[in-house]
Write a protein that binds this DNA or RNA. Structure first.
Lengths: 205, 205
DNA sequence: CCTACCGATCGGTAGG
DNA sequence: CCTACCGATCGGTAGG
């Protein structure tokens, strides 16, 4: 998305105009969907934050459902691309898991609104989009499980249910939503290091 | 709640009648709130599942908001009572943390609907109830952090940010919501053991 | 427990 | 981008 705009900006100065307004609407929607939830956010709430009447939103977007879909689709793509990079790297399995913890932690911190909406509001997607998301998420978890499984087989990781390990990692990252809210007492870098340390090496010495 | 009914049942056979109907409504509401979210669940949805007209629900409950409040308040009480028991026990700090992981894992498995609603729908509480919940949750986390802190001071736990550790534990448990949905391939006991093992001792040997 | 109904608000459209 | 408005649905009440 950002890359696309960057290229378009260099090739045609006037082209991104409409797109920028749409992006602004989606950005503000992500913020509201995270705060209040998708169902409890009205198009009038959104319009107010954007600074227009509700009817005017429809010159830039087709429906409320489409906004949710675009937020989630964009975030899913970023996760999938990262997973592919990690899978095809030459790191150890433990390093790959560490990379996944770091990536998701950064997503939660630096793409806070969009990532939170993806993990908490996906159930409000329309039936077809919902089915597609569920399929992609299942596949994503399966591929993470495979890395854990391979790490166990290689003796790098202790024998644990890969399913529980993957769920714990993804859920722990989700928990950072709560941290983010209560201001940045702790730096992002420090949080990331402690996430990795706890999830990889546990509490005991 | 269950204890209260149990006692009432022995003392007066006719007393719990109205209460049972209310409990049934709340139980079904918890199921719907978890599946669709509080805001996306209508009183007509609930009435249909209960098997009456929407207007009839109001003979047993005062408002939609009250239902959410009762679900959450009951679950909060159970968590707080358990925490007090653990705090006052003579176990090591590590054992106390283990006990908390086990308790919350069991809550998520055996009080699935109510616990899920508490962790996912609390933001829809009415302002006064919301403020109270936020206060209690903050206090709960603080007390868990204190146990971690003491464990570190005693040399039982490696030096990690207590805040991150507590968040990871509570969030990992929350992630079991997803597991529960996909049938019981793995037994509850096995899940609990692997939760403890991962969160206490990590992935590495 | 029901029928009948209330005012408010919802997502979205028509027309300019 | 607005005003004006649509039908549908919301939580909840009155009255029996």
């Amino acid at each position: 998305m950002y890359n696309h705009n960057f290229i378009a900006l260099r090739m045609n100065q006037t082209a991104p105009k409409v797109s920028n307004k749409k992006n602004r609407i989606i950005k503000i929607a992500a913020k509201l969907f995270r705060e209040k939830g998708y169902a409890a956010t009205s198009m009038r709430d959104l319009a107010e934050q954007v600074g227009v009447e509700a009817a005017s939103l429809y010159n830039h977007i087709n429906s409320k459902a489409q906004i949710l879909d675009e937020i989630i689709e964009k975030t899913v793509s970023q996760c999938t691309e990262n997973l592919e990079e990690i899978e095809s790297s030459n790191e150890s399995y433990l390093k790959k898991i560490e990379g996944l913890i770091r990536f998701h932690t950064r997503m939660m911190i630096f793409q806070f609104e969009e990532y939170s909406v993806m993990v908490s509001e996906w159930m409000h997607l329309e039936p077809k989009k919902l089915a597609n998301f569920a399929k992609q998420r299942k596949e994503y978890v399966r591929r993470m499980e495979t890395i854990v499984q391979q790490g166990i087989a290689a003796g790098e990781i202790k024998p644990l249910m890969p399913y529980v390990v993957v769920l714990n990692i993804l859920s722990s990252v989700r928990g950072l939503e709560f941290w983010h809210r209560s201001s940045k007492i702790h730096s992002a870098k420090k949080i990331e290091e402690h996430m990795v340390k706890h999830l990889l090496t546990g509490l005991t010495h």
